[in-house]
């Protein structure tokens, strides 16, 4: 096996391990569009990063965090529906990114690479960052876990029972923003939400507890990464879309199996 395939697998599996549990909350709390918004806006982060001569990762992470907090705070005011707010931010930021990009004459930004991801370009440092960063993100999620499950059931009930509702809510948005920023390099802006949503949705019918669903989502995601990268290698198809197609295949196959949830 070539080394760059090994790196791609190592990076992809790191992502599957992180995306499984976070993807469950994306499904439970209906945050799929939030993930899409962050991904779309990330192109603006890439462009601004290039303008300011920053590392792409820093540009994306900074923009994603800002946006996550902005959405979190705007959702407190209820004069606009949540998906309307996201629609404005998502497409506004994407359009702004494309316009600014066109104005930058000398920018060498591989737009296709960002849109579709390029897992085969990961180096070992990237892989180490993904596993290390992933461990930190999962540890933070574990701290918030009980409160997050409680606010997923009912925010008022959780508050009465002593959970720090606001901390959990905003914390989750910030963490998901970081997961999306990390995943983008692997599967690209267009497909990043799929890696969160599809494994969790596949796991739902076979889980009887929140934790089972998170663990199963990790397994489904890992299977999709292995199958997708294998197919990409064998048939010379783009890696990000191949992983998502593999996840879709697992999802569809799972529907044929009787569930127990």
């Amino acid at each position: 096996m070539d080394e760059f395939l090994a790196r791609a697998l190592a990076g992809g599996l790191a992502l599957a391990v992180v995306a499984g549990p976070f993807g469950c909350f994306v499904v439970w709390r209906r945050m799929a569009y939030f993930g899409d918004t962050l991904a779309h806006a990330a192109l603006l982060g890439v462009v601004l990063g290039a303008l300011l001569d920053l590392d792409f990762g820093i540009g994306i992470a900074a923009l994603s965090l800002t946006l996550a907090l902005a959405v979190g705070l705007m959702q407190r005011r209820r004069d606009l529906a949540s998906d309307t707010v996201l629609g404005i931010l998502s497409h506004g930021a994407l359009a702004l990114g494309l316009v600014v990009l066109s104005l930058m004459q000398d920018a060498r930004i591989n737009v296709m690479g960002w849109l579709l991801g390029d897992i085969l370009s990961l180096d070992w440092f990237d892989v180490a960052v993904m596993w290390g960063g992933g461990a930190v993100l999962l540890a933070a999620l574990a701290v918030l876990w009980r409160s997050l499950v409680a606010i997923t059931i009912d925010e008022d009930l959780a508050a009465v029972e002593g959970h720090a509702v606001e901390r959990a809510r905003l914390g989750l948005m910030v963490l998901v923003a970081l997961v999306v920023a990390a995943a983008m390099k692997v599967v690209g802006i267009l497909l990043v939400t799929a890696l969160l949503v599809v494994p969790a949705a596949t796991a739902r019918r076979f889980a009887r507890t929140p934790e089972q669903m998170a663990a199963l989502a990790v397994l489904v995601g890992a299977a999709a990464v292995v199958l997708g990268l294998g197919a990409s290698w064998r048939f010379d198809t783009p890696s990000g879309p191949s992983v998502v197609v593999a996840a879709l295949g697992v999802f569809l196959a799972s529907r044929a199996v009787p569930g127990r949830g």
């Binding site: 499904v27 439970w28 709390r29 209906r30 009980r146 499950v149 409680a150 997923t152 059931i153 009912d154 008022d156 009930l157 009465v160 029972e161 949705a201 739902r204 889980a207 009887r208 507890t209 929140p210 089972q212 669903m213 949830g261």
Partner: peptide, 26 residues
């Protein structure tokens, strides 16, 4: 310590949660 029963509770159907777990959380 307060026990609260809200007017209605819409548990997200995608959330796998047993009654036992729901009781333990409180």
């Amino acid at each position: 310590v307060v026990g609260y029963v809200p007017q209605s509770l819409n548990v997200e159907p995608t959330l796998p949660l047993s009654v036992r777990r729901f009781l333990s959380m409180a």
